[in-house]
Computed example of a mutant assay.
Amino acid sequence: MIDVETDADRSLRTVTIDRPEARNALTVESLKALEAAIDDADEPVVYLRGNGPAFCAGADLETVSELEGDRERAIEFARLGQRVARTIEDSPAIVVAGIDGPARGGGLEFALACDVRVGTPDSTYGEPGVTFGLFGAWGGTVRLPRVIGEGDALEFALSGRAVDAEEARRMGLISRIEAEPRTVAEEIAANAPDTLAVLKRRIRDDRERATQERLEAQAFGDLVEAHADDIDALLE
């Protein structure tokens, strides 16, 4: 259900959610496989995509039905999805979501956990759970307002509506619209791996500003030292 490929120079890992017959909806087994595929990555960039006409429909509804209304089992399932999202967000690799077709519910929540989100012109985005009495519980209520702001997050989540790529770009759900989102992952993978990792840590850092600025300066000093020859070459 989860396919992993690495390019020839080991700069880019492609992780594919491969369940097109179910719009790449995620079961317990595929959630664990996705977590392992991200956690095991030693490439500096990971490209996350879905196979077929959808990026990911989120939680498999049959799996949710099998919870049989058991509150504790439902909490356990939510925590598993949250753990996978944290694995994506906390990965040392830069994780790029390439979104083609629908990203719904948990699929959108996993995209929100990625560092960069790129959609095709045919991509669409939604949190439809509210229309049948649920909501995305894989960290979406935390990340959605952080990414698009509280006002848009509330309207988007409470309405249950889907938005197209252009509106998603306006809201900040995605950063670019590309016919081939993988090209963005390749652009990023062409850069210095250590610098990519430092930038992710610094931009993701949510500690108070003085601490962030001190760590930013230290990281800059480390990189200047590590890349002194590269900097000199630019002046030649």
Rank of each mutant, 00 (worst) to 15 (best):
I99T: 03
R86G: 01
W138C: 08
A8K: 07
G52N: 02
I75L: 14
M1E: 10
D115R: 01
V28F: 10
R104L: 15
G98W: 04
I148M: 11
D230P: 07
E35C: 06
P181L: 06
A111P: 04
E29C: 08
L215Q: 14
A37L: 05
A22R: 14
K32Y: 06
D122V: 11
L234D: 06
T124I: 13
A226W: 11
A37Y: 07
T183Q: 09
G98I: 10
C114W: 01
A85F: 01
A59M: 12
L223W: 02
L48F: 13
M1I: 09
A113F: 03
L80S: 00
I75G: 04
V95D: 03
L196R: 05
T195N: 05
Q212C: 03
T211L: 11
F135E: 14
E236K: 04
P128K: 02
E216Y: 15
F132L: 11
Y125L: 05
F135G: 14
E208S: 13
N24E: 02
V96N: 01
G50D: 01
A217H: 15
I88A: 01
N24R: 04
A111S: 07
A185F: 13
A113P: 04
V28E: 06
E155S: 11
T211P: 02
F156H: 15
R214Y: 02
I17L: 15
N191Y: 04
T63I: 02
A93M: 10
D222E: 14
R71H: 10
P121H: 04
E109Y: 02
D222V: 09
V130C: 05
A57E: 08
E216Q: 15
D7V: 06
R176H: 08
E89R: 15
A54T: 00
R176Q: 03
P121R: 06
G129K: 04
L31S: 06
I231R: 07
R104Q: 09
